[in-house]
Design a protein around this nucleic acid. Structure first.
Length: 713
DNA sequence: GAGCACTGC
């Protein structure tokens, strides 16, 4: 550990040995962050973690084992000095690689030295599974039963009680708590971990904890200690934001990784990655597995096909090759393939999206091939549309990817881009808060008591248009009094209470008058979950045929509801899901969301009325809540949106893709190759005129001239 | 007749 400002001690691990594929050359001079092998037994299960039976069982260690493991962590030797720093400063920034032991050891250090007399230690994580596994591990090390002294809180699961002193929670969960108590009075220490990931929640929390600390200090009792933990080397930014807070560096052990860059610019990064794969395959021992970072499902499936074909031609000449795709939308049983050990004399090649960058860890990876690209979502405030496109990664991401080769032993990373290209990459990825729709964030800020979101103390301020766009949408939804005076209305307060996109809360509120809350709450829950349709390209046709019995001629929302009802009738049976090509995990998730929403409805006096067997109220409700998302048929399959007057197409996954009704309401607008609307429902155009007067007035004001007389061509 | 990266409440 060294004190701040003297830090530039990255090991350059670009060694001189190692074989080079023909089109790659050894990199020179680029620094490499420290990679530390985690010395515990923490494993992360992929995907949303709802199925408790699938969670890795906590390993059982003896007291001696646990102590030995603790002592082997790099942090152990410096714990006394670290403690001094923690005592000395009210705000401390700790830089250390993931797995250096900081996340498990620092909360214990704080706890055992009495810094929790006036409250609990909160440790935030960007992901649920991490919060759960870390709490399990720390409880074990402290000899406590999980849920007592050590616990965790994530959505749908609160394993903590009033005695809990070390609490792991998702950053989103702490933000929720802050909306009820902006001073976060029950905590004496708040640790924001993985701060370098800059999730939208952590970014808001930066300011929330800073404000809470200041106010509590002014009140003079129960002061708040803040610890920011990050893996980034760009510490000045953090330190400056937290009033020049002290920075502590934690060194770790690492396995060296040799990095190679392409010799010249690769026109086709897929082809280049494929060539590299087989050059490695020719020489490396069979149990040295390979991880290839690609951008998306389609790309991965095409790459897998090519790789398997080539491997078949080479059969018998080298080791066997087992190709495993890995992306979040892949059904869990297929995801597990990427984590299992392959048979003898077989090399595993995992083709992954950036899910393998942070969310999951795969054993035995010695080689990484990095295509240098990522698919990222950007919000366009002018059109209200999200654009999904492939872009170059940042340097920090490139190092993160490379690090995946050195988790258990020395490794290699082959980059499908030149050193020059690498040097031209942005040092860090653009934080989420600067590129996503901020409607929910602005709503949360207002609920937290922030007066002027435009001048909120962001660590990195989002573009003004994004904040203004959010205010505009909130105003249209009736959530704030006016754009100039952003004060929450009663509707706005309800929107803040619901863990939903405000547009979806609006739907629930609209359902009250139409007597279809029972149905709308299910639909909103389904829209909140990942896709419930299983869509492997290989069996797409079969899947569509089997699911045809659920399809509604009225659109996707009714179709979703039909599947959900059938799932519940089938007693939420897993096999039923398998037979019907629907995703069990995501349906279970929707059931949980529905439960939560139903409770909130009860609390806010929205009766769970059903309109069954009628469906018209549901479609009228969708229109009432989503009146900004209406489109009219033009010609050649194109639609024109009522509000922003953009040409859009119904997404091929929609049940209305063939039908092309004259007027539709949709829940998602996204640009990939084309501009698509997804989740589409057929409506009667006359219903627009029958909307409540205030809504119509608002519509006319917003889109003058487009509501009464759209040009039909 | 064509395709959405990843999280979270």
């Amino acid at each position: 550990m060294t004190d701040s400002s003297s830090q530039n001690n990255n090991d350059s691990t670009n060694g001189s040995h190692g074989k080079r594929p023909a089109q790659s050359s050894g990199s020179s001079g680029a620094s490499f962050p420290k990679i530390v092998k985690f010395n515990g037994n923490i494993q992360r299960t992929p995907g949303r973690d709802l199925d408790a039976t699938k969670r890795p069982a906590p390993a059982h260690y003896s007291r001696e084992d646990l102590l030995a493991q603790k002592q082997a962590l790099p942090i152990y030797a410096v714990r006394q000095r670290l403690l001094e720093e923690l005592r000395k400063h009210q705000t401390l920034i700790i830089i250390g690689e993931t797995g250096s032991g900081k996340t498990t050891q620092i909360p214990q250090l704080i706890f055992t030295h009495g810094m929790t007399e006036n409250g609990t230690i909160a440790v935030t994580q960007p992901r649920r599974v991490a919060a759960i596994t870390l709490a399990t591990r720390v409880a074990q090390e402290m000899g406590a039963q999980l849920g007592t002294t050590v616990g965790y809180t994530v959505r749908f699961e609160d394993v903590s009680n009033f005695k809990t002193k070390v609490k792991f929670l998702t950053d989103g969960m702490l933000l929720r708590e802050a909306m009820l108590d902006p001073l976060l009075k029950r905590y004496s220490v708040i640790i924001l971990d993985e701060a370098h990931e800059r999730t939208i929640h952590t970014d808001v929390l930066f300011s929330v904890v800073k404000t809470a600390q200041k106010k509590r200090a002014e009140q003079g009792n129960n002061r708040l200690k803040i610890v920011i933990m990050s893996a980034t080397m760009d510490v000045d930014h953090f330190s400056l934001y937290f009033n020049k807070a002290s920075v502590v560096y934690l060194e770790g052990r690492q396995f060296p990784i040799q990095v190679f860059h392409a010799k010249q610019i690769q026109e086709d990064y897929l082809f280049s990655s494929l060539v590299t794969l087989f050059q490695i395959h020719k020489d490396a021992p069979a149990d040295h597995h390979i991880l290839i970072f690609l951008t998306g499902q389609e790309e991965i499936e095409a790459f897998a096909k090519s790789a398997r074909t080539i491997a078949k031609d080479l059969q018998g000449k080298y080791a066997n090759l087992k190709v495993c795709p890995l992306f979040a939308n892949l059904p869990q049983n297929q995801q597990m393939e990427a984590f299992s050990s392959p048979p003898p004399n077989t090399r595993k090649v995992v083709l992954s999206t950036n899910i393998a960058e942070t969310s999951v860890t795969i054993d035995g990876i010695r080689y990484v091939i990095d295509c240098g690209r990522v698919k990222a979502r950007t919000h366009m405030p002018a059109t209200g549309m999200d654009v999904l496109r492939i872009q170059k990664i940042a340097q920090a991401q490139a190092w993160q990817r490379a690090g995946r080769a050195g988790r258990q032993a020395a490794g290699f990373c082959y980059r499908a881009y030149t050193l020059n290209e690498f040097e031209k990459m942005a040092p860090n990825a653009i934080p989420e808060i600067q590129r996503c729709s901020l409607t929910t964030v602005v709503l949360q800020l207002l609920a937290l008591g922030v007066q002027d979101p435009l001048h909120f103390d962001f660590m990195d301020k989002p573009p003004t248009e994004l904040i203004e766009g959010a205010m505009k949408e909130l105003h249209l939804l009736g959530g704030i009094q006016s754009i100039d005076k952003p004060v929450l209305t009663e509707i706005g307060q309800q929107m803040a209470a619901f863990p939903l996109d405000p547009r979806f809360t609006k739907l629930i509120l609209a359902s009250k008058d139409l007597g279809c809350t029972e149905e709308i709450v299910s639909i909103v829950a389904l829209l909140s979950a990942d896709s419930i349709m299983v869509n492997a390209s290989a069996q797409r046709e079969q899947a569509n045929n089997v699911r045809a019995k659920f399809a509604s001629s009225e659109g996707d929302h009714m179709t979703l509801l039909n599947i959900f009802r059938a799932f519940r009738t089938a007693k939420q049976n897993r096999n039923w899901c398998f037979e019907n090509f629907v995703n069990y995990r995501n349906l279970l998730y929707a059931v949980e969301v529905r439960k939560q929403l139903a409770e909130l409805c009860e609390r806010t006096n929205i009766p769970m009325k059903s309109c069954n067997p009628q469906t018209e109220p549901i479609r009228r409700c969708l229109l009432a809540g989503l009146f900004l998302s209406v489109a009219e048929y033009q010609r050649e399959g194109h639609y024109l949106t009522l509000g922003s007057r953009q040409t859009v197409t119904i997404h091929p996954s929609s049940v209305l893709f063939h039908t092309k009704p004259s007027c539709i309401v949709f829940t998602e607008l996204i640009q990939t190759g084309k501009r698509y609307v997804r989740q589409v429902t057929l409506i009667d155009r006359d219903w627009i005129e029958e909307l409540p007067k205030e809504t119509l007035l608002q519509l006319r004001q917003t889109f003058r001239g487009t509501v009464n007389g759209p040009n039909r061509s």
